[in-house]
Design a protein around this nucleic acid. Structure first.
Lengths: 306, 306
DNA sequence: ACCTATCGTTCTATCAATGGGACAATGTGG
DNA sequence: CCACATTGTCCCATTGATAGAACGATAGGT
């Protein structure tokens, strides 16, 4: 059963003949003749009665026509539905990111995207574990990584580098040695993101290229940056976090930066997507938006947004 | 746009993968892979996200699937509708015949066919002009003809020969010369079927092979055999008609046969149909029924049915 | 950490569908 | 009444799709 044959048959019926249908479809009439005959053979029924001059539909041909016509109309609907989404800014974009990126990065810009694109629905899946993009039906993931991602078949797009700084409460800072020397931090209580091993250390880079590794004492570890920030604000220790995450606390004075001349990491933020082709305009617009807006939000040297 | 590609896509979605669908359909998976990719290219959208291990449907793929699934279900309906009519004794049979054949031939047997085949609808188109079978959507025509029909592409099936006799009212008969000689009828008033020319004659055949042509005087001409019979019963003249048409009048004694040793024609009754292939069982059953029952009805030597 | 079964894709010789013209049949207009 | 235009079908060289194996990748069992 070749579904195209049904289409050809419907066309012949509607145009009132093989030649007319062939002209309308811009295909040779020999094809129409052959395919309709094939359809009749498949069904085991004569659908058209032909003279060399005129074509009429059998009783059963009329019935088949009605149903086939409906079916083809449905296909039309299916195609139109797709084309509408590919031509207009509609559809759903599913984005995966870490909780921190959601709270302190996307949170600042996502509302604007939603306002600018009323037809687009954004589904955010904030999680601190990497999700499988394909299994999860995720259109784009925002990932931070130190070295290049090994994920082979995924499309990668470098977005920005973010600086991680060391933070603590002003009170805690006052109690520290005020020198600009990393070694002074050795053994200090650390608030650590993720699951640290038995020993932990801050890997610091100076502004002039020097680096230092400072062992510390893990007092608290969490997947959640907000919780770590709160712990730091309560003077429980020193935390290494992306600069943009702590911007409002710095402005408010509830956290201060430790060792302003040193950074605690400079990971790459990249966008990952399953494939570049066949992407909805809505998704492309979202990508463009992220590429345009996110770097500024993640930059260390910008003041907080109004 | 290849509609089969949509079918393949739906199968892949429903079976949950290319390999599973290929196994279910008994086709190589390379075809599925190629055709689904082609569909995606045609639509300009990615419908499936693939790993070497897993396949998931895109958001838009899900939408396309829903519509395409509906459309395919419609095709299923179309096919089932046809197959039902080709497998069971259902459908409509359109038969064309002359008014005389309808009133005095088919009338006797058609009710039985309808009773025996409750699912079959018979549309009878009784007309004294030959209709175009194909233009008129006629499945089978019953035609009487003296020499072989020239209609080339139509299928012909010889059914029976019918004898035409000369009839008149008993009163009229009494007034005739009672000899068995055709020449005695010369100049008698004739009731003629169809549109006679200026002159008319009866062409008679004797039982032993002799023939005679008897000129007569046209008093009344009509397309309708019943009207002619009535005119004859009213002693308006002599009419040449198929024997079976006048059977009941002969039995009732309102008409008598003129020149019992002579016949006024012996045309062939044939069935004509547009084509033999792709015929509905209902139509085939009707053909078989006609072939089986009609000759007896048309026979000259049978008593009238009860 | 290997091994194996299975996944979807890709490659290429092979085969079937195709397209364009020829053809017989048949309305149509002069 | 005849020439012509147009109908649907048939024929055959050519082109495009296909089948089957090879392939890289991956998940799960051991």
């Amino acid at each position: 059963m070749d579904l195209n044959d049904a289409f050809y048959f419907v066309q012949v019926v509607e145009k009132g003949g093989f030649s007319a249908a062939a002209r309308a479809l811009n295909i040779p009439k020999s094809r129409l003749s052959r395919r309709v005959r094939q359809l009749e053979d498949d069904l085991g029924v004569r659908l058209l009665q032909r003279t060399s001059r005129i074509v009429t539909t059998t009783e059963i041909g009329k019935e088949y026509y009605r149903h086939a016509h409906d079916a083809l109309a449905r296909f039309e609907v299916a195609e139109v539905a797709v084309r509408r989404k590919t031509n207009t800014m509609e559809g759903t974009v599913t984005v995966s990111c870490s909780v921190g990126m959601a709270q302190f990065g996307l949170d600042l810009i996502l509302p604007r995207f939603l306002q600018d694109n009323p037809g687009v629905t954004v589904v955010q899946r904030a999680s601190n574990q990497m999700e499988d993009l394909i299994k999860g039906g995720i259109d784009v993931a925002i990932r931070g990584h130190m070295d290049s991602l090994p994920d082979s078949r995924l499309i990668q797009m470098r977005l920005a580098r973010v600086e991680w700084h060391l933070f603590c409460s002003p009170e805690f800072h006052d109690a520290l040695d005020q020198g600009d020397d990393p070694v002074a931090l050795a053994g200090q209580p650390a608030l650590v993101l993720g699951r640290p091993g038995a020993t932990h250390q801050w890997v610091l880079s100076g502004c002039d290229g020097q680096s230092a590794s400072v062992p510390c004492r893990v007092r608290f570890a969490s997947d959640d940056m907000s919780t770590l920030k709160n712990a730091a604000a309560l003077s429980l220790g020193i935390v290494a976090l992306p600069a943009y995450v702590c911007r409002s606390e710095i402005d408010a004075g509830t956290l201060v930066r430790v060792l302003p001349g040193w950074t605690a990491g400079n990971p790459q933020i990249s966008l990952l997507m399953p494939s570049r082709q066949g992407m909805l305009p809505a998704c492309e617009a979202f990508l463009k938006f992220l590429k345009q807006e996110l770097p500024a939000v993640l930059a260390s040297d910008l003041p907080a947004a109004a």
